[in-house]
Write a protein that binds this DNA or RNA. Structure first.
Length: 542
RNA sequence: GCGCCCAUAGCUCAGCCGGAUAGAGCAUCUGCCUUCUAAGCAGAGGGUCCCAGGUUCGAGUCCUGGUGGGCGUGCCA
């Protein structure tokens, strides 16, 4: 509809002797319903160029506007020079009915956007995911779904940091806990990770190998620790319905010599230098405040070097777009990495970085304290057990990514109207119930029919709301702003509940009942499609 | 100190390229179930959009400078 109006407005302006770029014609839904369904401010933006009063331009535009009564019921000039368009009810009804035919595809864009790689979670395999990780898990999973819906071929990737010093620390901790499980006193100096899960790993090794591994090399314990953590992390992700296509192992970069290759290139281009036994990258040449170490004096690379090699790897795989998601606490890492990749002559313009702010947890009005040092950690598994998968998936994406998120555990547990995810699911279940009732009454529904006999204002408003779905997905995907989806679905649920309240669905009037049942099905379809993007379930009963 | 993010109703937050009278949920108050799910609907009250300048027909939105908070600023990731 927007495109149609844009084209007609452009034609009208051209006929009136005004030249304008079609793309610069803005159309948006007004706040007040009495201002119509779409409005343009084009007369006001052209006022200066044309040296005319905005209302005069608007008047000329409307005079030359060729209105198709099938689609547009009214064109009005209002306020300082807005032009308001009101859709014809027949158009709204026909479009809304098509939702039933498009069904599970309603809202999808044709596959043409290209290939995109989304890397997220990428938590170190040194322990279970904690509750705070949940935000990134859900943001990334939802974004991937959304990108798929809007025509992207998505590769879901997890960068598995199974190299580096943190793995040595894990290995030492595992060895201490293993020895402890055999009855030795642990050397607290070597216990880097205090969580109980490492004791579990230690006990597991005892069960499998007994005392046989007393003198095993650190590599053995590293392997055991990594294996356990990987299994644990993927199990948690699996619970949330999150599946990665690729787990990219950091150690592969070492094995394949890619770390050395990158280091060599930096040297050749004089982008690195030796100082105090370490190798530094001249990031100041890229505009940062100071140079950064990429190889420590111990000979081990810092995270930056493998990250650069990894990103080069991803760039070379030839995606149309590469998206990295990470939390604000890792904010400092990426500019150097991108700059490093670029400095070696690789394209970086198609790399988008999404930074999300941190999460705090509140329960019964009390903030939930977490301390890694004391091992007092609230794990993502615990959160899932406490509030359920759907609440986790929904709560973590209901706010914009660059504001802090306060996760109210009590609210998420609440099975009432206070809980926004229940409100949404209730609408779906309510429709399912109506459809069951209708089936008992002898209604059988196909995808044929029309909404031509639905004229109640609640019905028309509901249909209009359903028609917004593709646009909401498109806008959300374009801006990587997934929280709009949840808000939108809430509006759909509200419009449906209002309709339900105003219009009895199953009545003596069979034809009216049929149409209203079809409208219910269309609402249910939009909710289902939206839930599919968000990764939450669509209950038939509640 | 410097970098990024944030500041909108009592609370948690929306507000897509700058648009018309700034919105939602919760909380508070008032109505609505013999009829398809009241986990619902309707209504009321509640605002210095942090402050000060600037840009223009028009600023919650853009710019500058402050104030307050979060996260960084490691030879951790």
């Amino acid at each position: 509809m927007k495109e149609y109006l844009r084209e007609r407005i452009h034609a009208a302006l051209t006929a009136a002797g005004v030249s304008v770029e079609p793309a610069s014609i803005q159309l948006e839904a007004p706040n007040q319903p009495e201002h119509g369904d779409l409005a343009t401010n084009v007369a006001m933006t052209l006022a200066k160029q044309e040296k005319k009063n905005p209302r005069q331009i608007a008047t000329e535009l409307v005079e030359h506007f060729q209105r198709d009564d099938e689609k547009i019921a009214a064109v009005e000039i209002a306020g300082p020079g807005f032009i308001n368009f009101r859709f014809a009810d027949g158009y709204v009804k026909d479009e809304a009915f098509r939702i039933l035919k498009e069904a599970g595809n309603y809202g999808k864009t044709a596959d043409s956007s290209g290939r995109v790689n989304v890397e997220w979670v990428s938590a170190n395999p040194t322990g279970p995911l904690h509750a705070g990780h949940g935000r990134q898990v859900c943001i990334g999973a939802t974004l991937c779904n959304l990108l798929e819906w809007t025509g992207w071929d998505v590769t879901r990737e997890y960068y598995f940091n199974n190299a580096g010093n943190q793995m040595n620390n894990l290995a030492e901790t595992v060895r201490e806990r293993y020895l402890e499980a055999l009855g030795d006193a642990p050397d607290e100096e070597k216990v880097h990770y205090v969580g109980d899960y490492v004791k579990e790993i230690g006990r597991g090794i005892v069960e499998e190998h007994g005392e046989a591994k007393r003198d095993a090399a650190l590599d053995f314990f590293r392997g055991e620790g990594e294996k356990w953590c990987f299994a644990h992390i993927t199990r948690t992700l699996d619970k949330l319905g999150v599946k990665h296509d690729v787990f990219f192992n950091e150690d592969a970069l070492y094995k394949e010599g890619k770390i050395d290759a990158v280091l060599q290139q930096f040297k050749e281009k004089d982008l690195s230098y030796e100082q105090e036994g370490a190798t530094w990258l001249r990031t100041t040449a890229f505009g940062t405040d100071k140079d950064r170490v990429i190889v420590k004096s111990t000979g081990e690379p810092t995270y930056r070097l493998p990250d650069i090699a990894y990103h080069i790897e991803k760039v070379q795989r030839g995606y149309d777009k590469i998206i990295d998601i990470f939390g604000a606490d890792h904010m400092a890492a990426y500019p150097d990495v991108i700059a490093g990749v670029k400095a070696l002559g690789h394209e970086t313009g198609h790399i988008d970085v999404i930074i999300h702010q941190m999460v705090s947890f509140v329960n019964e009005g009390e903030s939930v304290k977490m301390s890694k040092r004391s091992g007092n950690v609230y794990y993502l598994n615990d959160l899932i057990d406490d509030v359920g998968v759907d609440a986790v998936r929904y709560f973590f994406i209901m706010r914009g990514v660059n504001t802090h998120l306060e996760f109210d555990i009590k609210l998420a547990q609440e099975q009432s109207e206070k809980n926004p995810v229940y409100y949404l699911q209730y609408a779906h279940a309510r429709i399912a119930s109506i459809l069951r009732f209708a089936a008992d009454e002898g209604f059988s529904l196909t995808d044929e029919g029309s909404f031509s006999n639905l004229d109640h204002q609640s019905e028309i408003e509901l249909m209009k709301k359903l028609l917004d779905f593709p646009g909401v997905l498109e806008m959300s995907a374009r801006n990587y702003e997934i929280h709009h989806i949840g808000n939108y679905l809430n509006e759909v649920a509200t419009a449906f509940h209002k309709f339900y309240h105003d219009c009895r669905v199953v009545t003596e009037d069979k034809e009216l009942s049929r149409s209203r049942l079809q409208l219910c099905r269309a609402v249910q379809q939009v909710l289902r499609n939206g839930f599919a993007v968000l990764g939450i379930s669509a209950p038939e009963k509640m």
